[in-house]
Design a protein around this nucleic acid. Structure first.
Lengths: 201, 201
DNA sequence: AGAAAATTCTACTCTAAAGTCAAATTTCTC
DNA sequence: GAGAAATTTGACTTTAGAGTAGAATTTTCT
């Protein structure tokens, strides 16, 4: 169904503004991922969108806000993925694989990027982002521990289990570029298997 | 045996200079790892050694050289590790574990850091560093392929196998901090197991 | 001790890039 | 199509931090 609201969207000022702001963040995030936050100037970000640097300041307060929102966007997506609960038949390992696959898809299919440059954020912004990352990590660790309880996942330090395959995810984000022989699905399949075999009981 | 050369070292000008330069690089590399290249100023680097910024320029041409040498230092260590050949009894998987353990030890025990900020290098320096990284990756991929041949490692895209656990290594470098409950040996044991189980045939 | 070499410092300059502002342009509303 | 609101721009200012020069200090050597 096409809602009344969504039909009106193109004429709604706020929605238009939000959509453009989002485009700025997404485009910048992609550049940050490829070249790094500090190697991407506001002029670069503008140019990629056919704008001058000054126009960007109509959408964001400053460069740091862009970095902050880039991080948020990634963590929002991950939170979204983590919302879907396991089906009753699913043991911990299966559920973990299910989540992990979606993480891989997120990074390979949607334009969302996992950024590493948290230290370029200051004060509250940094605190919030670190908090979000931590919460996600905790959530995944919890899934692993569920799996250890139902004996689908082998024992051992659950955090170390998680750090290992989350590293694969972060690294994937760094080398994957959308071109090349490897497509997202192949990677997801391969990684899912390596994840399973690495920690299954 | 203490060689004549090493006894003389403290009086040898060049050796003293090289040792100090090395200390600059190592200290800076550690700061780069923790806070990032661009969030570490030359003044910071100097302060950590009880020097002013200007004094650093007695040892290095510019900041970029420090980044370059930091990278080199890590890759030299990894090359060193990769030099030891497998023993005749060792299959591909065992040899890979042997190498991987030493990589983990390198990052947790010695002060060496794996940096990610390659894009802040320019021209030849960037090319060289990317080349070195590539060579190491190739070498590790080759080990995996040996393991696939001797059937100790399961089939599948060898590069993807490697990307997975090399991601764990890079990520380890980002979160490990020397304090905390987890010591290097525990991590090495855990990671080695997860590596094996993830790809063994 | 005194000269020479090595090392470090103070006090600058220079630059890239972030951020600002008032004016120009485009888009929407009636 | 006129006026208002939204968007974009060119031409600035500002700033953090890299890099430099020459003097000052420390170390080494005879």
């Amino acid at each position: 169904m096409v809602s009344a609201a969504s039909v009106k969207a193109p004429f709604d000022r706020e929605i238009q503004f939000a959509a453009k702001k989002r485009a700025v963040i997404l485009s910048a995030a992609s550049a940050f991922r490829r070249r790094g936050y500090h190697n991407t100037s506001m002029t670069d970000i503008g140019k990629a969108l056919g704008l001058t640097k000054a126009a960007l300041y109509y959408y964001v307060r400053n460069k740091e806000e862009i970095l902050f929102e880039s991080h948020l966007m990634a963590y929002d997506s991950m939170d979204e993925i983590l919302k879907s609960p396991p089906s009753q038949s699913q043991n911990g390992l299966d559920y973990l694989e299910f989540i992990f696959r979606q993480f891989v898809d997120l990074l390979t299919q949607s334009g969302v990027s996992l950024l590493t440059d948290v230290d370029s954020l200051s004060g509250d912004w940094k605190t919030e982002i670190l908090g979000r990352r931590n919460a996600i990590e905790k959530r995944v660790i919890h899934i692993v521990e569920q799996g250890q309880k139902d004996e689908s996942i082998r024992g051992g330090d659950s955090r170390l289990h998680v750090f290992f395959f989350m590293g694969a995810l972060n690294w994937l984000n760094a080398w994957f570029d959308g071109e090349g022989r490897l497509n997202g699905e192949d990677i997801a399949n391969h990684f899912a298997l390596q994840l399973r075999d690495g920690i299954s009981a």
